[in-house]
Lab assay of single mutants.
Amino acid sequence: QTVQFNGLEYHFPNPEEAEKFAKKVAKELGGEVRVKDGRWQID
C-alpha cells in the first residue's frame, strides 16, 4: 500500500498502516486524504 504526499511515496505492508499514517499526516498538515488509483494521496 502506498501513501503519496509532497512528491514522496511511503510504502506500507498493509492497508491499515497506510490508512493510519495518511490520516495522521493529513491531520498534521491540515490536508485532505483521498484514494486515487489504489494509493492514498494527501493534498
Rank of each mutant, 00 (worst) to 15 (best):
E19M: 07
E19K: 06
Y10V: 07
D43N: 10
G30M: 06
K24R: 10
F21M: 04
R39V: 14
A22P: 03
V35R: 08
G30Q: 07
V3P: 00
F5Q: 01
E9N: 07
G30S: 06
K23Y: 09
N14I: 04
L29S: 11
P15T: 09
T2I: 15
P13Y: 07
K24V: 06
V33N: 02
E16T: 10
D37H: 04
E19V: 03
D37L: 02
K20R: 12
E19C: 14
K20Q: 12
N6K: 07
E16N: 07
H11C: 15
G31L: 15
E17F: 04
E17K: 04
Q41H: 12
Q4G: 07
V33G: 03
T2V: 14
L8K: 13
K24P: 00
N14K: 03
E32L: 12
E16K: 08
K27Q: 12
G31Y: 13
Y10R: 05
F21S: 02
Q4S: 13
N14Y: 04
K20C: 15
V25H: 03
I42R: 02
V33Y: 06
W40P: 04
K23R: 12
Q41P: 04
K20H: 10
A18F: 02
K27Y: 09
P13K: 11
P13I: 09
F21I: 03
G7Q: 04
H11L: 08
K36H: 11
E19P: 02
G30C: 13
G30T: 04
W40S: 04
E28M: 14
Q1S: 14
T2D: 03
P15E: 11
F21W: 11
K20N: 11
L8W: 12
D37T: 02
P15W: 12
A18Y: 02
H11R: 06
D43F: 15
V35N: 09
R39C: 14
D43P: 03
W40K: 04
E17Y: 04
Q1K: 12
K24L: 11
D43C: 15
E19H: 05
E32Q: 13
F12G: 00
P15H: 10
V35W: 15
Q4P: 01
L8A: 09
R39M: 13
G30Y: 06
K20S: 10
N14V: 03
F5Y: 11
Q4T: 13
F21G: 03
N6S: 06
V35I: 12
V33S: 05
K24I: 09
R39Y: 14
K24W: 10
F12H: 00
G7V: 00
E17T: 07
V33Q: 02
I42C: 11
A26E: 02
A26Y: 02
V3S: 00
K36S: 10
Q4D: 09
G7D: 07
E32G: 06
E32D: 09
E17V: 05
F12W: 01
K24N: 10
E16D: 10
N14E: 05
A22H: 01
A26I: 07
N6A: 10
G38A: 03
K27G: 09
W40E: 04
R39A: 10
